[in-house]
Computed example of a mutant assay.
Amino acid sequence: MRHVDPEILALLALGEQVALPEDSVHVSECEQCRREIEVLSRAAMVGRSTFDAGELVEPPSRVWERISDELSLAADPSAVEPKVAVEPDVAAGHDLATTADVAPEPADAEVSPATNVHSLAERRRRRPWIGVLAAAAAVALVAAAGSAIWATFQPSSQPTILASATLDAFPAWPDSSGVATLEELPDGTRIIDVNLDAPTTDGGYREVWLITTDATALVSLGIVEGTSGQFTVPDGLDISSYDLVDISEEQFDGDPAHSGDSIVRGQLSTEA
Score class of each variant (00 low, 15 high):
237 L>G: 04
133 L>A: 01
17 Q>D: 14
138 A>E: 05
206 R>W: 13
103 A>S: 11
48 R>G: 00
229 G>R: 08
124 R>A: 05
89 D>L: 09
183 E>Y: 15
99 T>D: 14
182 L>E: 02
217 A>P: 01
117 V>K: 08
36 E>I: 02
71 L>W: 12
212 T>N: 04
193 D>R: 08
44 A>Y: 15
228 S>M: 08
186 P>D: 02
186 P>E: 07
27 V>S: 06
217 A>N: 10
33 C>P: 12
97 A>L: 03
210 L>W: 10
9 L>F: 13
13 A>D: 04
89 D>Q: 04
100 A>T: 14
256 P>Y: 03
41 S>A: 09
32 Q>T: 13
64 W>F: 14
91 A>D: 09
208 V>H: 03
61 S>N: 08
77 P>G: 02
160 T>F: 11
9 L>Y: 09
270 T>S: 15
236 G>R: 04
35 R>D: 15
89 D>R: 12
42 R>G: 09
216 T>Q: 10
141 L>W: 14
30 C>Q: 05
76 D>V: 12
201 T>W: 13
24 S>L: 14
8 I>K: 09
259 S>T: 10
256 P>T: 05
173 W>T: 00
2 R>S: 13
51 F>Y: 11
202 D>S: 12
84 V>C: 07
42 R>W: 15
220 S>L: 01
35 R>W: 08
153 F>N: 01
223 I>M: 04
13 A>P: 02
169 A>W: 04
18 V>K: 10
174 P>M: 01
167 L>R: 08
249 E>A: 06
9 L>K: 07
133 L>P: 01
76 D>S: 14
191 I>L: 13
81 E>F: 12
153 F>V: 14
132 V>H: 07
111 V>M: 07
249 E>H: 13
187 D>W: 09
65 E>S: 13
240 S>E: 13
14 L>D: 05
127 R>K: 06
108 D>S: 10
201 T>P: 01
60 P>Y: 03
60 P>C: 00
174 P>W: 11
209 W>D: 08
208 V>Y: 03
133 L>G: 01
257 A>I: 04
115 T>C: 04
242 Y>G: 09
53 A>K: 11
159 P>G: 05
217 A>T: 02
220 S>M: 13
230 Q>E: 11
161 I>F: 14
174 P>H: 05
116 N>V: 07
67 I>L: 11
148 A>P: 04
201 T>L: 03
107 A>V: 11
189 T>E: 15
80 V>M: 10
258 H>Y: 13
167 L>Q: 12
88 P>T: 04
44 A>V: 04
160 T>S: 12
239 I>V: 15
157 S>H: 10
131 G>K: 04
234 P>Y: 10
250 E>L: 09
171 P>A: 02
68 S>W: 01
231 F>S: 02
